[in-house]
Amino acid sequence: MSEYQKLIDGARGAAESSQNADELALARSKFLGKKSLLSDAKKGLGKLEEVERAAAGKELNEVLNLIEEVFEQREAALQEEAWNLQFESERLDLSERLETLRRGHLHLITQARDHLEDVFVGMGFTVAEGPEVETAWYNFEALNIPDWHPARGNFDTIFVNLGSPEEVMLRSHTSPVQVRTMENHQPPIYVVAPGRTFRTDSADATHLPAFNQIEGLVVDKGITMGDLAGTIDSFVQAFFGSEVKSRLRPSYFPFTEPSAEFDISRPDGSWLELGGCGMVHPNVLSNCGIDPEEWQGFAFGFGIDRLVAMRFQLDDIRELVVNDARFLRQF
């Protein structure tokens, strides 16, 4: 066995017996350091004849590389071992959730309202808003409902102690926003007005004194009842799904003429009444400073709470105002 082979075997043994990086470094310097045999051998090369030097240098280099490799391999193995130890010690059960992070929840009404707004914005509408306390002019008179009109009784209005008796009220529908929009903008008008509305309905499983509606208004040249039916149909398909159909039935609202209820189809083939609609009454247009001979329009409206109750099969609509976090966090 040559001297070199002995060294190589020795290095291998020293590397294998090193149990950590420090021991390995020590062993390495013993074989490859400045005071090692190989280092001396390197220095001794200079003393050799030129002819011998080349061969001896080559052999020495091979040995050096081999030993270098031995230590590198051992170093990698030790590192791997260290990682494995760390990994083992750090093993965690990820199902131990502490639930320190959670996201909050938008109220169901907001979610529905946003969804409705998005559908209508996609159809070219903007979103208008108005005050919740209104005057009789905006809530009734401008909408062609004079003080004696039997339809006023249908609104079950909550009045507010401001102004003269029954002059100021909590709006009983979102239609006042129509009036405000038309007073402030000349056509073309394409708006929806979502918002809170109020009636003297005692709270029960299907009624709330404060609830939400969304109202649509279009005023433009040559708007027809066909456009109304088509717009309702587009909305119904966009919101409920393309398989859902809509239909209009004659009805009556003082602020539209002709007036209609609109129904949507249910999977069992029956119809569900969703809201009211119609062509804006010429008196309403005139009341808002719009010439009914030049412009025509339609309006429609429906309740958001009922829609939400239907969609999520709420058996008690009062959940929507109780604000039990266990309810709010479900959606």
């Binding site: 509408f125 027809t224 066909g226 039916a229 239909r247 209609a260």
Partner: peptide
Amino acid sequence: YENIRRSVPKGTAPG
């Protein structure tokens, strides 16, 4: 009402 042909308003601007 059911016989009225459905259409959509022509003048819609982006919403």
